[in-house]
């Protein structure tokens, strides 16, 4: 059990996301969401933390879906609601697994099931520094406000756009500089191109019950949706 713990976690994540992506009916997606939330509630874990961690990806997904809808309204809104629900459920499960099993275990699992090591390491570092960059952006915003910056009548107003452009540009440069410092810090502690994460821990029976509880309901729902 010890050697397959992280692989089992990563594989169940992939299976859940594939299951969710196969739904075509909005009702079944909602049923699946309700059942998934019920399993979370039954398992009694740090659900609020998982929701909080998924806030920004969910907002990003909502923005992208809305943007796609604005560009092409011919298909009606339902198709876009389905896309959003699918992404929402996928983000929620990833966030839940991270909260429950630790991100390094999930990443180790992805490496074991064949994801390129360099890609997995990039995901790991992006996840870690997302928080640092968010804080940096927050402090830059505060600095702007303290210097009297006010948004114009709307997002598209020229001055607002210009200042926000500077902000994003500056954040980009700071991030590039930080990435160099992080890389140097990693080199100084023996990094040689491969992130070695913590040794695996065992997967408990209760974890397996949770994984089964997450994977079986969407499989049944999919069967009902496709057959009936």
């Amino acid at each position: 059990m010890k050697n397959i713990a992280s692989s089992a976690i990563a594989l169940s994540l992939v299976i859940y996301i594939i299951e969710v992506s196969l739904f075509n009916d909005i009702r079944f997606l909602i049923y699946n969401l309700v059942i998934t939330l019920a399993v979370f509630a039954l398992y009694n874990f740090r659900f609020i933390e998982a929701v909080r961690n998924s806030k920004i990806p969910v907002l990003f997904s909502a923005f992208m879906v809305f943007f796609a809808y604005i560009l092409n309204m011919d298909f009606g809104y339902q198709k876009y609601v389905i896309i959003f629900l699918k992404s929402f459920e996928a983000i929620l499960i990833v966030s839940t697994f991270n909260t429950m099993f630790s991100f390094s275990k999930v990443i180790t699992g992805f490496k074991k099931i064949g994801l390129l090591s360099v890609l997995a390491d990039m995901v790991f570092l992006t996840y870690r520094y997302f928080d640092v960059i968010s804080k940096e952006l927050e402090s830059m915003e505060k600095a702007l406000i303290s210097k009297g910056f006010k948004r114009g009548r709307g997002f598209w107003e020229w001055n607002t756009m210009k200042i926000l452009g500077y902000l994003v540009g500056s954040l980009f440069i700071r991030s590039a500089e930080r990435s160099e410092r992080v890389y140097n810090a990693m080199l100084s502690r023996g990094y040689s191109g491969k992130l070695v994460l913590k040794e695996e821990e065992s997967l408990f029976a209760s974890n397996l019950i949770f994984i089964a509880g997450i994977l079986i309901p969407p499989a049944i729902l999919l069967f009902i949706e496709k057959v009936y």
């Binding site: 930080r178 810090a185 023996g190 990094y191 913590k198």
Partner: peptide, 25 residues
């Protein structure tokens, strides 16, 4: 070498893993 800004150096998922980073490497 301990860097000036700990955010440049401390990046692992837990404190234990971060301290173990060097010895493991």
């Amino acid at each position: 070498l301990v860097f000036q800004n700990p955010d440049d150096q401390v990046f692992s998922a837990t404190v234990y893993e971060d301290i173990a980073f060097g010895p493991v490497n």
